[in-house]
Write a protein that binds this DNA or RNA. Sequence first.
RNA 1: GCGGGGGUGCCCGAGCUGGUCAAAGGGGGCGGACUCAAGAUCCGCUGGCGUAGGCCUGCGUGGGUUCGAAGCCCACCCCCCGCACCA
Length: 945
Amino acid sequence: MSLANFFNEIAFKWQKEWENSKVYEANPETDKPKKFITVAFPYTNSPLHIGHGRTYITADIYARYLRMKGYNVLFPFAFQFTGTPILSISESVKRGDEEIISTFVNIYQIPKEEIEKFSDPTYLAEYFKNNMKNTAKKLGLGIDWRREFTTVDPIFEKFVQWQYRKLMELGYIKREDSPVAYCPRDEFPVGMHDTKGDVEPEITDLDGIYFPSGDYFFIAATPRPETIFGAVALLVNPEADYVIATDSLNRKVIISRQAYDKLKYQISFREEGEKKGKDLVGMIAKNPVTEKEIKVLPSKFVDPSIGTGVVMAVPSHEPLHYIALTELKEEFELIPVIKTDELGELPGVEAVGLAQTRNPAELKDYIDTIYRIEYHKGIMREDLVDLVPNFMKEFVKDKIAGKLVKDAREKTRELLDMLNSRITIYEISNGPVYCRCGAEIVVKVIKGQWFIDYSNPIWKTSVLKSLDKINFIPTDSKKEMEKIIFNLQPRAFTRSRGLGVRLPWDEKEIIDSLSDSTIYTAFYTIVHKLKYPISLLSDKFWDYILLDRGTADEISKELGIPKEQLEEIKSEFKYWYPVDSRHSGRDLIQNHLPYYLFHHFAIFGEKFLPRQIVTNGFIRVGGKKMSKSFGNIYPLNRAIDEYGVETVRIALTSTSSISDDIEFNSNIAKSIAEQLKKIHDLISKLLEIEGVNERRDPDVWLLSIFRRYIEDVDKAYENLDLRTVYMTVYYTIYETIKDYIELTNAKINKDIIKKVISIWLRLMAPITPHLAEELWHKMSNTFVVKEKFPSINEVEYNEKSLLKVEYLRSIIEDVNRLSSELGKEAEKVVIYVNDDNNLRELLKKAIIAIKDRKSLRDFMIENNVDDKTARRIYELANVLPSTIRDLIVTTDIDEEEVIVQNINFLMNKLDLREMIVYSSTDEKAPNILGKKDLALPYKPGIAIL
RNA sequence: GCGGGGGUGCCCGAGCUGGUCAAAGGGGGCGGACUCAAGAUCCGCUGGCGUAGGCCUGCGUGGGUUCGAAGCCCACCCCCCGCACCA
């Protein structure tokens, strides 16, 4: 049987037992302190993968730890159905999309006949919900499943709608026009999951500037509106088609056909006529700010599909414009607009000279550099004032000339707006991007899009302030969160399609997934008790339960729900809330977690913010972040089958610190599995050995050292430093017990080993509960997962015994090291112990001084020693094993006596024929190999013969 | 640009509350055992010099703090990730 199967059989057995005994069903117990642990729930568009696993197992470990520490722990779970991807996948399946279907077949091994049914989005979501739930159970997550729900449950919809009516009342909802990526054929906004090759469409904005030309206006598109002062010509593509259209002010504008086809989704244009590009050439236009007359010229560089197909030429700052104009052999002016220290007066001209090329592709680096330097370091020239007509001079002088480009750009826009000469144009910057239906994605401006106003200064400030009340793990995540919240902008929170909750006041809109999942953790506390007709769950109901408004009598009368039931539901909410620890992946710091805090604050106020937020790093496979495009998604189920539950639980959570990414691969998993097997076998064997009853130094040493382990592991669990827990519990303790067996020559003390194993199993129970349970039942009939976490009071602590054994171990280690280095077996060993009491005292002082970070100089002055002695003693303090170093501060032993008492033990252990101990101050003792002089306190001189 | 995380030996990768750190663990390489042989498995070695617990070089580069720096501080170079309506 493989190791994976071996552990999985154990695991599944105990999972059944726990379920039968309802170990994880939590109900309010008013006399017991509670802990409420939640995780960010999964989106049900595919099975759980090992990335989910990390967050869920971490939370599970924490929940188990807290339960053992005596808390009443609630750890619930639910499923996110809301969102458009499920719909997109479903539609793709219906369409027979090979890419999607093969993902399900190859990565997730889903049967074909199931996939066919995915054309029903709800079926798909349900299918993956059940699949996920199964996997969660297999993982051993200790969840109270009575409280599971999905975000399309009618009760949940009621709950979310209540929340949004509250936000509306509070004035946190607003409407604005908003650009989105849009498929013109399907007629809906698209995201990454809707595009061919899963490309996220990115939107940038450009400025369209109106240049009057007789009865017409050319609209030139530019990313750098501030260079308008240097625009000395307009360029059009002579081969392209242009459209004449009227805008909302009834002006006749000219843009390319391709631009028109895209911009009609953003701006209300009405097509009036058509012109060839070459027919536009020769027209005279006017620069709207300088009012200079400029020519319309032909250039093949102008791409009619970019911007508006009309370009304002600024040869002074744009190398390509300079090239285009010089090639036309036209006379033109060079008007410098921006000055910088790094670039010359006319960067557009200079770049062409420097690059020694007229090829646009080769000039790209130069152009990027000019853009970057001018934007970040450039200053608008003072003489711009001379270029503009009188009525503009004051504005240009005050707001633009001499100002940083960064600021002047905004002011130039203002100027153009005052002249009614500017529009904003949106473009797909990484285009062309195609919809799965085949059509090219465009940008559409949605009129009156609903927004949540996260930029509201009072709301934002309150949330920022309240961060101090929350414990962040890792601590650095708080800083990150602060910055994100500080920069948080209003968020468009509704979509036109997909599964989810309808917006209560605009029922064709669906509240998007991140926005319906902001206070849903409150829902867990009561969902299992809400067995009422939907119609009864009015706003008054929620107000009473969650906000304590109104009286039970009043609500009971109005809704016909018994008063006692209302009171019970409310008190359950009050018992569990707020969340004590919220767990998620690190990526949610920039969206979900801030929203979670904003909404909690808005609805409940500061008192119900989560007490702690834990964010973990990602899981990498093959050195890369898991993603569909790398094809390296690792389903959790597969990992469990291949390596076993306990191995997966460790590999995904405990092999590195919480903020770091974890690499998951078979080598690591295998070595963990092997170690677990070793532990299993060792404990099983120890429980069978007869053992002795006498109590010797190594016995006391073992107990004493376990006291330290309890302390360390307890603290590590509390801080979710699972790496330390893992190293200590699964390796250090294992080695310690091996050492103990060695030290006692396998004559173990029965009671002591039982006690120590009991502690060991309880220390490992949060991380590997199944293994712990299996072994625990060899000693007891109770559930280890419900036992108390070990306390240091369970074991005696004797520093002297500790030091004695550590000292003997260090001698054994030293002798072994020396003899292996010499390449000869030790037969006879001579040991010199240093019993110079002054030196001992000094050493003790040095150890304390080092701990207190005292400088060498202070140490010298305080103890009246010279530089050389001080350095030597500092060095000695370093050389000592850390356990000994710590112990001799508070206790000491007579080295010679300890060795003499244990001389048989040492000789036995080292396989010696003879062993002699001398004191280094004994003048009669021979100085073999000069080792007598080498002896130092706790670091004896050793001669091997 | 802003924000986050990094640069470790032939390679991957731990360590990063300063001291058993010449630096865990793999992999690769070399040598050995087993084998007719190959594979698998097991053992040893894998910076240099030394061969009595030592010295030198060393954790991106250059400085600094300290009795002591891979770890802390400063500067520089380089790499990766995120930046919104997407779960």
